[in-house]
Amino acid sequence: MSDQHGTISLRQPHRPRAISYHGVRTVAGWTVKLYGISANDAAPRAELLHATTEIAASALPSPPRAGDRYGIGFAIAHDAADYCFALVDWWSGENEIHQRLYSAPLDRPAELRPHPSQAIGCVWELAVTDFERRAWLRHVLAAPDGPDVAAYLQSHFEERI
């Protein structure tokens, strides 16, 4: 389809990907929800999940609870079509998500390094971020009886997008 903005060429048609939940982990004193996405399977490779947890330990600020940090976050391991990605996110300042983004070659998922572009996430990763934003709003910021961190940590997202 063409319009006044031109044509967008897609490399391939959209293929839904499974977003899987891999539980709550303790990472360097932080409480982190771990998610996985894979372009080819139901879940990312175990090696990438492990590498994401390992990089989170060094990416998350220390100490976990200080000033406006709560020691709560989420991480996404994405076995994408072109790279391995790890997104490490944490809550700060009541309503802010902070993030570090890492990538590695597909054949070396353990070699995660800071991603060289200004990307913040793809449509699949942003589905998780959107869920986490809504869960934080529902269970922490707008909870009728005050913040319920346990309810936030119990809520999670799994779907094909």
Rank of each mutant, 00 (worst) to 15 (best):
A104D: 07
L141V: 12
Y152W: 07
S155L: 01
A142C: 10
P64R: 06
Y83D: 11
T129V: 15
D82R: 13
H50R: 15
I55D: 00
R65W: 01
A77L: 04
H78P: 04
V32R: 02
N95Y: 06
Q99S: 13
P144E: 07
T53E: 05
Y102L: 04
G93P: 00
F157I: 05
A127S: 15
A81R: 08
T7M: 12
Q4V: 13
W124P: 00
R25S: 11
R138P: 01
P147L: 10
G23A: 05
Q99M: 12
W136Y: 10
R11L: 11
R17L: 12
D3Q: 12
A42T: 15
T7Q: 14
T53S: 05
Y21C: 06
D89M: 04
E159N: 15
I8N: 11
A86F: 04
T7S: 11
S92Q: 14
L34P: 01
S38I: 06
L87D: 12
A39P: 04
P13E: 10
A86H: 03
H139N: 09
V128A: 11
P64H: 09
D130W: 04
H22M: 01
D89V: 02
A75I: 08
L106T: 03
P105Y: 00
I19E: 02
Q154H: 15
E54I: 08
R138A: 10
D107P: 03
A150W: 07
I120T: 14
D82V: 07
L49H: 01
A51W: 06
G29I: 08
A42Y: 07
G36W: 06
W124Q: 01
S9W: 08
Q99D: 00
V88L: 08
E54S: 13
N40R: 08
R15H: 14
W30E: 03
W124A: 01
Q154P: 02
P144W: 06
R45L: 12
D145P: 06
M1A: 15
L112P: 03
Y83M: 14
L141N: 02
A56I: 08
R108A: 15
P61I: 11
L112V: 03
H22P: 00
Q99N: 06
P64F: 13
G6R: 10
G29W: 06
H98A: 06
P16G: 09
I37C: 05
L126F: 12
G67F: 06
I55Q: 04
A51I: 14
L87H: 15
H139S: 04
R45G: 15
A119V: 14
A77W: 02
S20Q: 02
